[in-house]
Amino acid sequence: MLQQARHKNANMPRCAFLLLCFVALASTAGERLVYPLHSKGEDPEAYVVELLQLALRRSGGDYQLEPSLEPMPQSRAQLSLERNDGRVHVMWTMTTREREADLLPIRIPIYKGLISWRVFLVRADQRDLLADVTRREQLEALRMGQRHDWPDTAILRANGLNVVTTPGYESLFRMLDAGRFELFPREVVVAWDEQRRAEADGLHLAVDEHLVLHYPTAFYFFTSRQRPELAAAIQRGLEAAIADGGFERLFQRYHGKTLRRARMDKRQVIELDNPDLPEETPIDREALWYRPLAPK
Rank of each mutant, 00 (worst) to 15 (best):
D43N: 11
P44I: 00
E45I: 05
E45V: 09
E45D: 12
E45L: 05
E45Q: 14
A46F: 00
Y47R: 08
Y47C: 14
Y47N: 14
V48R: 08
V49R: 04
E50I: 02
E50K: 04
L51F: 00
L52P: 06
L54S: 03
L54Y: 05
L56D: 01
R57E: 10
R57L: 06
R57H: 02
S59E: 01
S59A: 00
G60V: 09
G61W: 01
Y63I: 04
Q64K: 12
P67L: 02
P67C: 01
S68W: 00
S68C: 01
S68V: 01
L69P: 00
L69D: 15
L69V: 14
L69M: 09
L69A: 14
E70N: 11
P71C: 02
M72N: 07
M72R: 08
P73S: 08
P73K: 00
S75K: 09
A77Y: 06
A77S: 02
Q78D: 14
Q78E: 14
L79E: 15
L79W: 12
L79P: 07
S80A: 07
L81H: 07
R83D: 09
R83A: 15
R83Y: 05
R83E: 08
N84K: 02
D85L: 00
G86I: 00
G86H: 06
V88R: 12
V88N: 10
M91Q: 11
W92T: 01
W92G: 07
W92Q: 02
M94L: 15
M94H: 13
T96H: 02
R97T: 14
E98L: 15
R99G: 05
E100I: 03
E100N: 07
A101R: 13
A101S: 10
D102F: 12
D102T: 11
D102S: 14
P105H: 07
P105I: 04
I106R: 03
R107D: 09
R107T: 10
I108W: 05
P109I: 00
P109R: 04
P109S: 01
P109M: 06
Y111P: 03
Y111M: 07
K112I: 02
K112C: 07
G113E: 02
G113K: 08
L114V: 04
L114N: 09
I115Y: 13
I115G: 15
W117Y: 11
W117F: 04
R118M: 03
F120V: 15
F120W: 12
F120R: 12
F120T: 11
F120M: 13
V122E: 04
R123I: 03
R123C: 03
A124G: 01
Q126F: 08
R127M: 07
D128I: 03
D128G: 06
D128Q: 09
L129K: 10
L129Q: 15
V133R: 05
T134V: 10
T134A: 15
T134H: 06
R135F: 04
R135Y: 05
R135H: 06
R135C: 04
R136W: 02
R136E: 10
E137M: 12
E137G: 03
Q138D: 13
Q138R: 12
E140N: 10
A141R: 12
L142Q: 09
R143I: 04
R143L: 06
M144D: 13
Q146F: 09
R147Y: 15
H148V: 13
H148L: 13
D149C: 06
D149L: 04
D149E: 02
T153G: 00
A154I: 03
A154N: 11
